[in-house]
Design a protein around this nucleic acid. Structure first.
Length: 214
DNA sequence: GGCATCGATGTCGTATGCCC
DNA sequence: GGGCATACGACATCGATGCC
């Protein structure tokens, strides 16, 4: 680490990172770590300074993006004016609504559960069947089984537990060597079908997955 | 340590507006 | 005033991570 720490030196890099980052998700820490890795330096003594520099660039970029979005937003606002009024009214009634909803759901909790889409059993693709071992299952249960399989087979990346190293079966399923924990849910949807779907379409083992590939 | 968030899913309930 | 249409939030589940 040099004594000639100059935050401006890193501003182009910060801008570059921010320009491709999701501003709603990115954090100062992530950017700082990224720069540390890039420059192979330790910002620890200058943590405060570099954080401020990152924040400054962040807000500037945010402002720029907001300005760009403003025109479009203005147009959208006019179109959605009526809906916005609706939304405000709905917001006003929100606590009341959630309370009444809760009471209702308390009363009919079992009924709702039965009707709830989350508890509805879905047919699963043969690839998924090979892993979880059942033909029909609710989505949450599928996810649960899948995680059990991942843990049983030690497929989580030890360095980043959000990543899953796919074995043969998972590679067949996801068509990737590794997937993120969150991405997994997305990819799963290609392997879950409504009961009717299977009855009428998949009896001939037609690959419904084809459409959803990137 | 505990809570919120992320991501997907489909249905239901609620609130409001509009038309007859 | 009643009924229909529309919009939108809540619901449940999973595990890892980040933040407070």
């Amino acid at each position: 680490m040099s004594d000639n720490y100059n935050p401006e030196e890193y501003i182009p890099t910060i801008d570059a990172i921010l320009s491709v980052a999701n501003l709603e998700k990115v954090s100062v820490k992530k950017i700082r770590n990224a720069i540390q890795e890039l420059f192979e330096i330790n910002f620890q003594p200058y943590k405060k300074e570099i954080n401020e520099a990152i924040l400054e660039r962040y807000y500037k970029l945010l402002e720029e993006r907001e300005n760009e979005a403003r025109d479009e937003e203005e147009r959208a606002k006019v179109v959605k004016k009526e809906n916005a009024v609706k939304a405000v009214r709905l917001q006003k009634n929100k606590p009341k609504q959630s309370k009444s909803r809760r009471t209702k759901s308390d009363e009919k909790s079992s009924e709702r559960r039965a009707n709830n889409a989350f508890f509805q059993e879905k047919n699963v693709s043969p690839e998924l069947q090979a892993i979880i071992g059942v033909e029909k299952c609710s989505r949450p249960q599928i996810v649960k089984q899948l995680w059990a399989y991942i843990k049983d087979n030690n497929l989580q990346n030890p360095e980043d537990k959000r990543k899953i190293n796919c074995d043969e079966k998972l590679q067949t399923l996801f068509k990737k060597q590794s997937v993120g924990a969150f991405e997994m849910n997305k990819l799963l949807s290609s392997h879950i079908f409504a009961s009717e779907e299977k009855g009428s379409e998949t009896t001939e083992s037609t690959p419904v997955i084809e459409e959803t590939t990137e």
